[in-house]
Amino acid sequence: MNIFRFLGDLSHLVSIWLLLHKMTTSKSCTGISFKTQALYALVFATRYLDLLYGSWHSMYNVAMKIFFIGSSLYILYLIKVPFKPTRDPAIDTFKLEYLVGGALIMSLIANYEYSFPEILWSFSIWLEAVAILPQLFIIQRTGEAENITTHYVAALGAYRGLYIPNWLYRYFAEGFFDPIAVIAGIIQTVIYLDFFYIYFTKVLKGQKFELP
């Protein structure tokens, strides 16, 4: 564990807290992509159910995995049950087939072993790389976003961004290099760049997130 990875994981926790805070205080899920949230639940289920076959690295690791699986299911429940009337499915129209299909193909091409757990792990890595796209698509379509929603996306992007110095650190300090996680992680971070540009130039200067 190094500082970049720890701050990244912390940022991931903050993002989930921001999302729950937005939904429970406004009692709505307006502007939130159910599809992105469903993809994250699938990412966590396919990556973290390795707990079931004994992949226990540390208490930290196990507790985080359980938290991410549990909170993602709770978020799906909130969107689908109590806040269902506030969701507008007509703007959440990104085609999931392409993302899931692409991740499936990538997991068969790029994995460390042709075994069920390894292909599942690789699938979750590639799927996570693109899971934010339906959410960014909603922001692009509506041309604006509530500030709290942009803070949520920014915290998620920061989590991914911080994993890059973590990999550099691990490569030089531990000789650890995981090419699949690194390549998918860089793709994932690049997807956030446009968003971050507007977030830094507008939202952090007190303006509303609006596309030009």
């Binding site: 992949s55 540390s58 690791n61 985080m64 995995k65 460390y112 072993e113 075994s115 996680a181």
Partner: peptide, 10 residues
């Protein structure tokens, strides 16, 4: 070299 099943990152 990456060993399968040793994914310690989240």
């Amino acid at each position: 070299e990456k060993t399968p099943g040793q994914h310690d990152e989240l």
